[in-house]
Design a protein around this nucleic acid. Structure first.
Lengths: 103, 103
DNA sequence: AATTTGCGAAACCGAATAGTTGCGTATATA
DNA sequence: TATATACGCAACTATTCGGTTTCGCAAATT
């Protein structure tokens, strides 16, 4: 099973889960109440997110709190960095053009 | 068919295509030669990338050159921005702790 | 004009995926 | 101790996905 961060964030429900647990740790039941889905479905998404280390869990009694592993999000950021470089270069080039026109 | 950027970049072959055409426009055949796959397979990926506007095409005779629509990549960047804010805040907090310890 | 080349599109197939249902287990509550 | 709650896991189903094969069309080459 090839699980990577990009595959994990491909699903909109998972992105919604990420958005919620980024703010505070939550249980599967609490998460399911926020969507039109069952606890089991959320549970499966959490398993995928856990497998690619985007999420960490903490047991408290019979409840399991899930929270975002923010470090892993940087992996997407570093992939994006190469393209950010491109659009920043283009922006600077445009900037140059505008400056030249102004003169 | 729900095509969005996140679903598009989920596939490793598509990320490789993006990396190549970010540097220069390429034809499906030229792209296929860079991978262990057929032109048709590449063609399907290009269709998906085109549908979500990550890629633009330019016909030249019977050849079609595909290149990256860098603007669309910013969509991923702006989604990531909310999380970047989180890790930067945490970094600053850690920075504060280190400063306090130093004194 | 006949052939080759570059391409998209459709039909098809096996694998993966999202979701449901049902189960077993552990913790909490009565 | 009996019951309710929170959860993960496995089995099952419908759908989607990545890839191949085949086809037809248009542009280039002979």
């Amino acid at each position: 099973m090839r699980r990577d961060v990009f595959q994990a964030i491909a699903d909109p429900t998972r992105r919604a889960i990420i958005a919620l647990i980024a703010l505070q740790a939550m249980t599967p039941n609490a998460l399911a109440e926020n969507f039109n889905t069952t606890r089991q479905a959320v549970s499966k998404h959490l398993r995928i997110l856990t497998e690619c280390e985007l999420v960490k869990q903490e047991q408290q009694g019979r409840e399991i709190y899930y929270s975002l592993e923010i470090e892993k999000m940087k992996e997407i950021d570093s992939w994006l960095a190469q393209y950010r470089k491109i659009w920043e270069t283009r922006f600077n080039q445009l900037d140059q053009v505008l400056l030249t026109l102004k003169k």
